[in-house]
Every structure is written in structure tokens, then in C-alpha cells.
Design a binder for these strands. Structure first.
Length: 442
RNA sequence: GUGGGUAUAGCGUAGUUGGUUAACGCGUCAGUUUGUGGCACUGAAGAUCGUGGGUUCGAAUCCCACUAUCCACCCCA
């Protein structure tokens, strides 16, 4: 019942060790997006509820039962964003970004909120890395976006993750397919599970996704959307496959991929893994040519994806992807006595101004305890400074890995160290060189 | 929303025919002679045994409820 010491259900804290991983992952992702020409867009954590109803679709589970919706004090209906696309597109339209030179390329990392029962890889607050490419109708845009994901995964050392693609057609050809699908399932109506009976009217595409044994068996002989694509959609899909082939990106066509958000058209894709439990979709996306128009703008083709950072981190852990080593503390000053402590306050400030990662005692610990602490934080060097050192104006810099020591005039560190000398000391520290004293001599 | 598992120090665990001061490892802190770390040894701090009820002379242990958490369905990133 001690609620105040527990984060709300489905949320999680990122303690320093965890948040360091996330920062690394986010850095890699955004860096690659930048190379692909995507500029970061930051949009609010909440939007008018209507935005999501219109874009994500009012028959979808996300909108019907998973949104954090509330009224603000003036009675407006507000919703915490359940995904990233709607907000990014809204902002692009609001600021006239689509009137500039196209294509418009936007990227973001944002928290998302969905009221679902938490389980492995599924949280009520999670973080999405996403990209939106607006204005380009060519399958080259689809290929570029998929290529971006592919490069992100490769760079992060992710394995055991596969790409599945499909086309769900466009407003021209999808109705014909839905009709065929309804007719097929109608003939087997009695064999359907209750939820599927319900889905048959609302969104027949979903039936293909059902895992109930009977429904799943039926799906195997159901009409396949790919047989119903109009010429334009077919060509789009064919050229996309050709591009992925030429890019050397492996993929599998999965005619059963049905995305849960209404705005998708033509290309849909998922990057899935089986290594992190039931929630194995790490990245999902596709083309949404109708969205801008749905939001009241001029029709504008677009393609994008969302990638779950928590799931990504889980996959990386599962496949043993290497994370970069944490930068270690360069030097730990060890003052003995009040006088030295005061002096070290100044010295350490100087060292930090020069760019060193420097630590000193804040706990009033003994010499031995301070050195143990230095060891614990993996300090590369220590320097004990007591009355004798203050008197002499120099102390021994000790290499904590080798145990080697070198006499250094620390007064110079504090007061006279030029930035050039600091650079050299930095280099020396970086190289684990034992002859640190030499580095400071002209 | 539906099902199943779990709940003992910061972390990981032990602890059933119910029985005196709840154990162990890691971690934290201190010490092993006074100004030099890692190893080892010694010691200390730290647990309302998830919460609330019930059974009993006596409950971490048995029963009920609640809560949290995990896994799966569902859905999706």
C-alpha cells in the first residue's frame, strides 16, 4: 500500500545504468536519421483527442480502449499521445512544412501512452523512435525508410530480427478484397471465435491475424490481399521488393500482416523477433497516403514507422549486442584533513574546467576508504594530498591499474595548467601511460 | 478486459508435520595498528516476512480478501 514508493503500473524508471543504455541507443538512432536527412521534430505529449480519433481510427483498439483521455479544466478533451505519427503530421501541417521543398523528412523520439495490461515488452508509457517521410509517392521512399531501420538495427548489433512486408492496398482495391474476405468468412461463420464474429463487420482484415486455432486454420485458405491489388498498388509493391533486393535487405512477404492503425495504405511492414516474448514487434510502419487529407490538408503521400525503444533494448540484451563502455573517472583526488579538502575543492574545479572527469571525497572518509572508493568508481588515477603535499606543492599521481606512481606539481594543475598541457595530460590518461609526470614537462 | 504464476533486507535466495532472538550470498559501512586501493579475514547496519482479516496457546509457514508484480490471451511499439 506504500503507493508513494512505487511507480504507477506499466511505467518504469531508468536508473543511471539503464538510462545510459537508452542514451546510447537514442544517440545511434538519431544520428542515423540525421544522415538520412531527417530533422528532429518535437511535439506535445498530449493532443486534442479528435486528432487521434481521426487519424488512428475510431474503430481501432488503440482509440476505443487504450487511450489516456481526460478533460482539461475548460472541458476540452485531451489525450496523451498513443503513437507518434499523428502529432508529427499535425505539426508539419500547422507550420506549413509541407509547403516547403519536398520531401519533408521528420524524425522523433517520444514517450507514448497506452492503457494496456503490462507485460514483457509492453508498457503503459513507452518510448518510440519514429520517422515520417512526406510528399514522396515512389516506392523509393518506402525503401529508404526500411533501409533506415535496417541500418539502425545493424549498427546496434541486433540479430535475430526479421523483416516482414505486405501491401494492404489502397481505397481503390481494398474494398474489393474486403468483400471477398467477408464472403469467405461468412461461409464459415459458425467456426469463428466470438471476437472474430464481431470483427467480421468492423474490420475483416483483422481476422487474418487471429491466433485462435480454428480461425488461424481458416486464414490459411482465405483470399490473399496480394491477389486483389490494383495495378498501381501491385506495381508499387513490386518495385519496392526490387529495391529491397538490390539493397541487399532480406525480407519475407507476409500477406497476413494487418496493421492496427487505420491510416495505413499500400506498404506495411514489421520487424519482428522471437527472442523477447510475446511482444515481438520491435518496429512497425508503412505508407499512409491518406492521412494528411484525413486531417484536412491537401492529399499528400507519406511513409513512416515507429520503433519501440524498450523492446529494442530487450532484443539487444537478448542477442548480446555490445554496449559501449562507460567513460571512467579520470582522476580521484584524495584529500587528508580539512585544509587539503578545501584546497581540493579548488583543484578539482580546475580539473573539471579542463575537461577531466574528476572526483574527490565528499563523505569525510579515511585515506583507505577513499582509495577503496576510487577503486570502486574505476578511477584511472588517484592523487593523495595532505599537509606534506600542500607544503611541497606536489604529490604523487598514482595509476590505479598498474600501481605506478609519478610525482606531479599539482599546483600547476590548479593554477597554471594551460589548455595545451591539459590536452596532453588527457592524452596520457587516455593511453594509460605510466609516465604521467613527463607529460607535464615542457 | 480474461486466465495462470509469484510476493522474505538495496539485489538474489533459504526457511512446511506451524514453536524461543528469520538464515545465506552479493552489495553497503567499519576494522585487521596509526598516510595508500583491488585479495583475504573480522564485525556492523539493514526485513513492519506485500497489505488487511481469520484459524491457533503460538503464523513467514494454514485459510480468505485485497494489492502489486510476472507470463500468456488480446492488442501493438
Amino acid at each position: 500500500m506504500a503507493l508513494i514508493t512505487k511507480a504507477p503500473r506499466g511505467t518504469q524508471d531508468f536508473v543511471p545504468a539503464e538510462s545510459a543504455k537508452m542514451r546510447y541507443i537514442e544517440g545511434v538512432l538519431m544520428k542515423i536519421a540525421e544522415k538520412y536527412g531527417f530533422g528532429e521534430i518535437r511535439t506535445p505529449s498530449f493532443e486534442h483527442t479528435e486528432l487521434f480519433v481521426r487519424s488512428v481510427g475510431d474503430t481501432t483498439d488503440v482509440v476505443q480502449k487504450e487511450m489516456y483521455t481526460f478533460e482539461d479544466k475548460k472541458g476540452r478533451s485531451i489525450t496523451l499521445k498513443p503513437e507518434g505519427t499523428a502529432g508529427a503530421v499535425r505539426a508539419a501541417m500547422e507550420h506549413g512544412l509541407l509547403a516547403e521543398a519536398l520531401p519533408l523528412k521528420l524524425s522523433y523520439i517520444t514517450p507514448c501512452f497506452r492503457y494496456e495490461k503490462a507485460q514483457a515488452g509492453r508498457y503503459r508509457e513507452f518510448h518510440q523512435f519514429g520517422v515520417e517521410l512526406l510528399g514522396a509517392q515512389s516506392s523509393a521512399a518506402d525503401a529508404e525508410v526500411i533501409g533506415l531501420v535496417n541500418q539502425c538495427l545493424t549498427t546496434l548489433g541486433v540479430e535475430s530480427i526479421r523483416l516482414f512486408i505486405n501491401s494492404i492496398g489502397c481505397p481503390n482495391c481494398r474494398p474489393g478484397y474486403q468483400k471477398a474476405l467477408r464472403e469467405y468468412y461468412q461461409a464459415h461463420y459458425d467456426d469463428l471465435c466470438p471476437t472474430c464474429k464481431d470483427r467480421l463487420e468492423r474490420n475483416p482484415l483483422r481476422l487474418l491475424d487471429c491466433k485462435e486455432e480454428k480461425c488461424h486454420a481458416l486464414a490459411e485458405h482465405a483470399p490473399v490481399i496480394l491477389d486483389y491489388l490494383c495495378e498501381e498498388c501491385q506495381q508499387h509493391f513490386d518495385t519496392l521488393k526490387a529495391r529491397l533486393d538490390s539493397m541487399g535487405i532480406p525480407y519475407e512477404v507476409d500477406p497476413y500482416i494487418v496493421r492496427g492503425l487505420d491510416y495505413y495504405t499500400k506498404t506495411v511492414f514489421e520487424f519482428k523477433t522471437e527472442t523477447i516474448g510475446a511482444q515481438g514487434t520491435v518496429c512497425g510502419g508503412g505508407r499512409y497516403d491518406g492521412l494528411v487529407e484525413m486531417l484536412g490538408g491537401q492529399k499528400q503521400p507519406a511513409v513512416g514507422f515507429g520503433m519501440g525503444l524498450e523492446r529494442l533494448a530487450l532484443v539487444m540484451e537478448a542477442c548480446g549486442a555490445l554496449l559501449p563502455e562507460q567513460p571512467r573517472c579520470d582522476i580521484c583526488l584524495v584529500p587528508l584533513g580539512e585544509k587539503a579538502s578545501v584546497y581540493c575543492s579548488a583543484l578539482i574545479q580546475r580539473l573539471r574546467e579542463e575537461g577531466f572527469a574528476a572526483e574527490s571525497d565528499l563523505m569525510g572518509r579515511s585515506l583507505k576508504a577513499q582509495l577503496k572508493y576510487a577503486n570502486k568508481i574505476a578511477a584511472r588515477y588517484t592523487m593523495v594530498i595532505g599537509d606534506a603535499e600542500l607544503e611541497a606543492g606536489s604529490a604523487r599521481l598514482k595509476d590505479m591499474d598498474s600501481g605506478a606512481e609519478a610525482e606531479v606539481a599539482f599546483a600547476r594543475l590548479a593554477a597554471e595548467l594551460t589548455s595545451r598541457e591539459a590536452d596532453r595530460l588527457c592524452q596520457g590518461i587516455a593511453q594509460t601511460g605510466p609516465d604521467v609526470a613527463g607529460l607535464l614537462k615542457e
